[in-house]
Amino acid sequence: MTDPGRLELLVCTYEHAMYRTALAILGDCHEAEDAVQDAFVKYLEKAPAFASGEHERAWLLRVLINGCKSRLRAPWRRRTTPLLDTYPAAAEEERLALEEISALPPKERAVIHLYYYEGYPTAEIAALTGEREGTVRSRLTRARARLRELLKGET
């Protein structure tokens, strides 16, 4: 990367979307911050050239998702427990929904986040996660069904 202002523009443009994606996958705010930082470092190391901003965003998200998957496979992660009893949210209903989403397995959390919060269609989610489109659709269906059951049990 030859332009130093380019990285600053890149971070300002994509940091929030990348952080939300990492947080949805990892479920830990500190790990999500580290994963986003690692993705930007990889961008600096590789200095790829892109045809458009959309390709750039897709590349960054792909690197981020792969990094999150690696973090989930780490042996030390299996020996930790979450510290938060509740998650901060604007309203009680929103907090409950976030807790239910965080109770989903990481792969289902990821597709829910990419589909509903980032607005990606299933074909693009499949390309980002490296899985088949049918797998993404079935994970989305399973996640919706689990959320429906979890939320129905609370009312």
Score class of each variant (00 low, 15 high):
R20D: 02
G27K: 01
C29F: 00
E33V: 03
D34H: 08
A35S: 01
V36R: 04
V36A: 05
Q37G: 07
Q37K: 10
D38N: 13
V41R: 11
K42E: 15
Y43G: 06
L44Y: 09
E45F: 11
K46C: 14
A51R: 14
S52V: 04
E54V: 07
H55N: 08
R57P: 03
R57V: 06
V63S: 12
L64T: 06
I65G: 05
N66T: 09
N66I: 02
C68P: 02
K69D: 08
R71M: 12
L72F: 08
R73D: 14
A74M: 09
R79G: 03
T80H: 00
P82C: 11
P82Y: 04
P82I: 01
L84T: 10
A89S: 10
A90D: 10
A90F: 09
A91H: 12
A91R: 12
E94Q: 09
L98C: 06
L98E: 00
P105M: 10
K107P: 07
K107L: 11
E108K: 13
A110I: 03
V111H: 06
Y117I: 05
Y120E: 04
Y120S: 05
Y120A: 04
P121V: 07
I125K: 05
I125A: 04
A126E: 13
L128Q: 04
R132E: 15
R132S: 12
T135Y: 13
S138T: 14
